[in-house]
C-alpha cells in the first residue's frame, strides 16, 4: 500500500508542471490560438526564478520574478504576432529554439557555467505544505498531503481558470473571440487586445509551471530543463478539447505514464524505449480520440441529414 501511495505521490509531483503547461495552453486555445511557446515561457521563468530568488534570498520574489519574465516572453510573442504581423507559429518555434540558447547564455554570464546552476546560485525553494486534517487520513494523507505548495496552487489555478473562462465577462469575450473573431469585432470587442490578455494570462500559468520546475521539483536551473513538458501540456489540452479540468486530468495522465516509465527503468527495461513511451502514447491517444470524435460527428451529420429528408 505504501508503494502505491509513494507512486501516486511522485506522479502528482511530476505532473504538476504539465498541469500548469496545459492550463497555459487552454487559456489561449479558448481565444482560438494555439500557444506553442509554453515551453519557452516555462524555461525563461525557471531561470529567472532561480536567479531572482538567489539574488534576493526570497522564494516569493523568485516566483513573482519568474512569472514576470514568462509574461514578458508572452507579450513579446503577442506583439510580434499581432502588431508586427509575424506568423504566430513561426514566432513560437523560433522563441522555443532561441530561448534554449538564450537561457544558457544568461546563465553563463551569471555563473560561468553552461550546464546548471548547482552550487553557483544559492536560490530558495518553495516549501512543502502539510494539510492539517488530511495528513492524518491513512492512504490519501500520504498521497495528497506534504506536496509542494505550487502543486496546491496548480489545483487552485485550474479552478480559477475554469471560473475565469466560463463565469466571467472576460472569459465570455475570450471564448467569443476564439469562436469567431470577426463576429466578436462586429459587436465592439477588440480581438487583438483580448489575444494579448489571454497570452498574458497564459504566461502567468506557464511562469508558475516554470518556477515550479526550478524551485520545487528541482532546486537549480539546468540547460533545457523543461525538455518538452510544455509541448506535453499543449497536447493534453488538445486531447481534452481545451476544457480546463479535462486538460489538467490528461496532463496528470501523462505525468503518471512518465512515473511508470521511471519505475520500469528501475526494473531494467531499456530506458530509451521507456522514455519514448509517454510521447508515443500522446500521439496515439490524440489520434484515437480525434478518430472517435470524427466518427461521432459523421454519425451526427448523417442523422441530421436523414432527418431533414436528404440521402447521402
Amino acid at each position: 500500500m505504501t508503494e502505491v501511495a509513494t507512486f501516486l505521490f511522485s506522479a502528482i509531483r511530476v505532473s504538476t508542471p504539465l498541469v500548469y503547461a496545459a492550463i497555459a495552453a487552454v487559456i489561449t486555445q479558448q481565444a482560438g490560438l494555439l500557444n506553442m511557446a509554453v515551453e519557452s515561457m516555462m524555461l525563461s521563468a525557471a531561470l529567472a526564478g532561480v536567479m531572482i530568488s538567489g539574488a534576493t534570498q526570497s522564494a516569493l520574489l523568485g516566483v513573482l520574478g519568474g512569472v514576470f519574465f514568462a509574461v514578458l516572453i508572452a507579450m513579446v510573442i503577442w506583439y510580434s504576432a499581432f502588431i508586427m504581423k509575424c506568423d504566430l507559429y513561426l514566432v513560437s518555434i523560433s522563441m522555443n529554439a532561441g530561448l534554449v540558447g538564450g537561457t544558457v547564455f544568461v546563465m553563463y554570464l551569471a555563473t560561468k557555467q553552461k550546464a546548471n546552476t548547482i552550487g553557483y546560485i544559492m536560490s530558495k525553494t518553495v516549501g512543502k505544505l502539510d494539510i492539517p486534517i488530511l495528513k492524518d487520513i491513512p492512504f490519501f494523507g500520504e498521497i495528497l498531503s506534504g506536496q509542494n505548495i505550487m502543486t496546491y496552487v496548480a489545483v487552485i489555478a485550474v479552478a480559477v481558470t475554469w471560473f475565469l473562462i466560463y463565469k466571467t465577462k472576460l472569459g465570455l469575450r475570450i471564448r467569443s473571440v476564439g469562436e469567431n473573431p470577426s463576429a466578436a469585432e462586429s459587436v465592439g470587442i477588440n480581438p487583438v487586445k483580448l489575444y494579448g490578455i489571454s497570452f498574458a494570462l497564459s504566461g502567468v500559468m506557464a511562469g508558475l509551471g516554470g518556477v515550479y520546475m526550478s524551485m520545487g521539483l528541482m532546486s537549480y536551473f539546468a540547460r533545457d530543463m523543461v525538455a518538452g513538458r510544455g509541448m506535453i501540456g499543449v497536447s493534453a489540452m488538445n486531447v481534452a478539447n481545451a476544457s480546463p479540468a479535462g486538460s489538467a486530468l490528461f496532463a496528470m495522465l501523462f505525468g503518471v505514464s512518465d512515473t511508470i516509465a521511471n519505475y520500469m527503468q528501475i526494473i531494467g527495461i531499456q530506458p530509451q524505449l521507456i522514455a519514448a513511451f509517454p510521447y508515443a502514447a500522446t500521439i496515439v491517444l490524440m489520434a484515437i480520440l480525434a478518430y472517435v470524435q470524427h466518427r461521432r460527428y459523421q454519425k451526427y451529420l448523417a442523422k441530421k441529414l436523414s432527418q431533414s429528408g436528404f440521402e447521402i
Binding site: 538564450g102 544558457v104 553552461k114
Partner: peptide
C-alpha cells in the same frame, strides 16, 4: 549560445 538568440531575432 547567443547565435541562437540571433536566429530567433
Amino acid at each position: 549560445e547567443f547565435v541562437q538568440i540571433m536566429q530567433a531575432l
